[in-house]
């Protein structure tokens, strides 16, 4: 288990734990079908500690590094 921020661009991983993510972000992720057990792919990261772009089930979304740090994943 590791934080999403430890992934490299292009890595695929399965989400294990979202409980430390802030309520609002978790709701939004849920809206887009991103929840525990779902596989995601880290597409790219923006420079200077900018947001992460992740892909899940063929759709892309952006979240902040600070939130990605609270998402626990498992490499697949």
């Amino acid at each position: 288990m590791m934080a999403m921020t430890q992934l490299q661009s292009g890595d695929r991983a399965k989400i294990v734990d979202l409980s430390r993510v802030s309520e609002l972000v978790r709701r939004r992720l849920l809206d887009m079908g991103v929840t525990e057990g779902v596989e995601v792919c880290l597409k790219c990261t923006m420079p200077l500690g900018g947001p992460f772009m992740i892909e899940s089930c063929g759709q892309c979304l952006g979240i902040r590094r600070s939130e990605a740090m609270r998402i626990q994943v498992e490499r697949v």
Partner: peptide
């Protein structure tokens, strides 16, 4: 309050 950001990137 702590600012949040989640954005959907449509095709």
């Amino acid at each position: 309050e702590s600012s949040v950001f989640v954005v959907e990137l449509p095709p």
